[in-house]
Every structure is written in C-alpha cells, then in structure tokens.
Amino acid sequence: MNAVTPVLEVDELVRHFTTKDFLGREVHRVRAVDGVSFTVAPGETLGLVGESGSGKSTTGRLVLRLDDPTEGRIRFEGQDITHLNAAQLLAVRRKMQVVFQDPFSSLNPRMRVGDAVAEPLKSHRILKTAAERHERVAQLFQRVGLDPRFAERFPHQFSGGQRQRIGIARALAVSPRLIVADEPITALDVSIQAQIVNLFMDLQQELGMAYLFIAHDLAMVRFLCHRVAVMLRGRIVEMATTEQLFAHPRHPYTQALISAMPIPDPDRELARQRIFYEAVTPPREARLAEVEKGHWVLA
C-alpha cells in the first residue's frame, strides 16, 4: 500500500444500536455501521457519500470518538485511539477537528465568536496569554475571509455562511492534521456554497491537512475529493479515486446514485438516462475486492 503512515486508518468498524426489554434481552438491533474500513492519507480528501441512514455520519462520529464503536479499530497517525479515555484523547483532539453542518448549533450563543475560536487555543494550552490568542484569532479570521473586528460579535449577528467560516476558523485554530467535515455546505445558501468549498480547497493547499468530507451532494464531492467511498446501509459498497468512481462506477448502487445527479441544463436533464437500483442490504459475508488498482467494490 502506501509508504506514508495514513493520518487515519479505520479497520472493520462496527456500531450497532440495540434496544432491550426489561429483562435486558435484546429485542432490536440497528446495524448503523457494519464493518467499515478505509484510510485517509496526509493531505488527502476522502469523500464519504450515501443516503441518510447509510451510516456515514455515525462513521464520522466514531472517528472523532464522539461515539464508541461496538467493534473495530481506529488509528490516528499510527496510534490506536479506539479505547483512549477522555484525558488521553485530548492530545488527539488537537490534531483532529470537526466542522458541522449547522455552525449555529455548535456555537455558544452567549460567547463572543472570537472567544469561541480562541477556546481550543486556551484549553490545549497552545497560547498562554490573552494577547497572543487575540492576535492568532485575528489571523484566523483573516484567513477564513472574515473581518477580524467581527471577533467581538455574537453568533446571532452573522449569516449562515459567516457562521460556517467561524466554525472553520475554530477548527483551524489548533493546526489539525485531519478535519472531519459533516455536510458542511448542506445548510448554506447556494450563493455561499461555492465560497466555502473554495475555502476548504485553499486551506488544504496552504496547510496540507486531510479531510474526511461527509456529504450527499455528489457534484460537490466530485469537485472537492481525491477519493470517494460510497456507503449503503452501514457498509462501504465501493471506494475509488474520484476519476475511477465517476467514470467507471461498478456497484449498481453507485451507478444509480451517479445517474440520478440532476444536471443544471434543461436539454441534458430531460435526456438523462437513469439507472434504477432497488437498494438491498449487502450480505454480511460480502467483502471489498480490488477490481483495479485503488478501486474497491463490495462483492
């Protein structure tokens, strides 16, 4: 495989949610994530796509250790972080940050946004004095395209696009090696989405961090990601470079997804040929097989 240590290695990750009756007997089991393996190389963007309920967001939460896996292993820069406790995780969290879909819900409404961005700098004891932090926050604001004077304001004084910039500034504060971005543009206005996608690309080019980009907008994924993994009912059904995946999708579900992408052109949209696929849960014994170099299909 790769000589470079991946920034993230996920191995046979499983997360089941069970409901039990009053005697503690299991009555129902949801296999949200059911044996998922992938790696993310330094500086790489891996897109994780799939319909709602496919397990892509749960996978993101497991990687961030916001949720505990039922089985499987997560390595971050070679270190097994699957069972680290909260104190041990602190050092990892410095290098692994998150950007959520709704930046508003992740910002404290009563905290000035500058303080929100400075918080990780303080809690990780990266910058000790308030003056140093203030200066760094100003730099970060500038970097994400916000007026540094806005640091004194409160979250409700910003538009959705500006709040997402604040969310990105906060994630960048600690200079992470990996950012897990969970549908970061879905809630934004169309006229703002391109700005944020460009910002993600510019920052990666400049700072070299990797992204795990969880999304359902295939056109944006195609544009932004180096590689793409397609999830269906808790499993990865196909994983390949973006070129391979979009030019030669092999799994019928991937083919159906790509053929369903709406094209913003009336003549082409109305002439579009769709491929139908009645989604079925992949058999448990199915395994990803490499059909060509770097192109994996569940079989």
Binding site: T45, Q205, L224, C225, H226, T242, E243
Partner: peptide, 8 residues
C-alpha cells in the same frame, strides 16, 4: 463536464 477531482 470538467474532469473530476481537483484536489490540492
């Protein structure tokens, strides 16, 4: 129509 995957 553009070739996919821009990336870094």
């Amino acid at each position: 129509d553009a070739p996919p995957s821009a990336g870094v």
